[in-house]
């Protein structure tokens, strides 16, 4: 889906070159506030139509001294966007509204916020959608090429702090292994890896990958194990005891596991209470730690179960 189609009709003309914005990562839409576009290190804002010139429709927000020249999002804009984002069918996204995000065609993810409605003390939906975070889908094909020989046929855990690219690396591992001929079972609880839109993966996860979308990790792993006979099970953001129990079960059934986990350093991994036990059992044979440099470049280090650096 072209991104400009998510925006109100009167803004579409100025949004036409959105795809050309280099490294566009996020678009933030907030009621009464400017439209923010995040590209790599920059924060851009959309100018009012009459203030746009040869330099284009966007300006770095830090270059602008005043907000007067900037377009501000109105309530009508948000209502219109709500229709486009949901394909005029809000009823079809009730579960996603409860979770606060939805995946649209093209694999772009939209985070939602606003006034929540509660039922029995739990969030049952969002009644006023007044904040959108459009996260533009990026696939980095080939980014796992360097680490693949080290993790091939090993239970692997990809480790990094948030935002360093765990999911992107995991997706490329899945795709590469799948193209190499391995049957992969993917449990995609938050639709971040395959980005399924009505059951169809929007990202390339390879020809031999079966996706269980929107499913609880521990249940999903067991389900895939029973039904799809995968050689490798891939899962994002392992965190609770049940997840690791399911991983252990899969590992003892001859299945290999690739998972990800949040941690700021390798030392943290060894000290995490939930993980410690499984590390001592040597459930995982490889750890891939992703470091993000100041320039935004990523570096991957691979360790074995004895914490020896392999590459």
């Amino acid at each position: 889906m072209r991104l400009e189609l998510l925006f109100p009709i009167h803004l579409r003309e100025t949004m036409k070159n959105l795809e050309k914005l280099q490294d566009l990562e996020e678009i933030r839409v907030r009621i009464g506030q400017p439209l923010f576009f995040y590209t790599g290190q920059k924060e851009l804002v959309l100018l009012l139509k009459e203030k746009q010139d040869k330099k284009g429709q966007f300006r770095n927000s830090r270059e602008l001294g005043t907000n007067d020249n900037v377009y501000h999002v109105t309530e009508a804009d948000l209502l219109e966007m709500q229709n486009y984002i949901s394909n005029y069918s809000l009823y079809a996204w009730q579960e996603e509204l409860r979770n606060g995000f939805l995946t649209i065609q093209g694999g772009h993810r939209i985070g939602l916020a606003g006034g929540t409605t509660n039922q029995n003390g739990r969030i049952s939906g969002i009644s006023y959608l007044t904040f959108f975070n459009i996260r533009v889908a990026h696939e980095r094909v080939g980014c796992a090429g360097k680490i693949l020989p080290y993790i091939w046929n090993h239970n692997t855990l990809i480790v990094s702090p948030p935002g360093a690219g765990k999911t992107t690396l995991l997706r490329d591992c899945i795709r590469s292994l799948s193209y190499e001929g391995m049957k992969i079972g993917l449990v995609d609880e938050r639709s971040e890896i395959a980005a399924c839109y009505h059951g169809i993966p929007q990202n390339d996860v390879g020809p031999r990958t079966d996706v269980l979308d929107g499913c609880n990790k521990s249940e999903g792993i067991v389900m895939l194990l029973r039904t799809m006979s995968p050689a490798v099970i891939a899962v994002d953001e392992l965190g609770i005891e049940d997840d690791f129990k399911a991983v252990e079960q899969a590992a003892y059934c001859g299945c290999k596991i690739i998972g990800t986990v949040h941690a700021g350093s390798m030392k943290e991994i060894q000290e995490k209470p939930v993980l410690k036990k499984w590390c001592e059992k040597e459930l995982f044979e490889r750890f891939v730690f992703i470091k993000k440099g100041e320039s935004g470049m990523r570096e991957c280090n691979v360790y074995n179960q004895r914490w020896e650096l392999l590459c």
């Binding site: 394909n87 005029y88 009823y91 079809a92």
Partner: peptide, 11 residues
């Protein structure tokens, strides 16, 4: 059909 498949109207 909408209720069963939970797909958008267009589909």
């Amino acid at each position: 059909e909408m209720n069963y498949s939970m797909r958008p109207v267009e589909q």
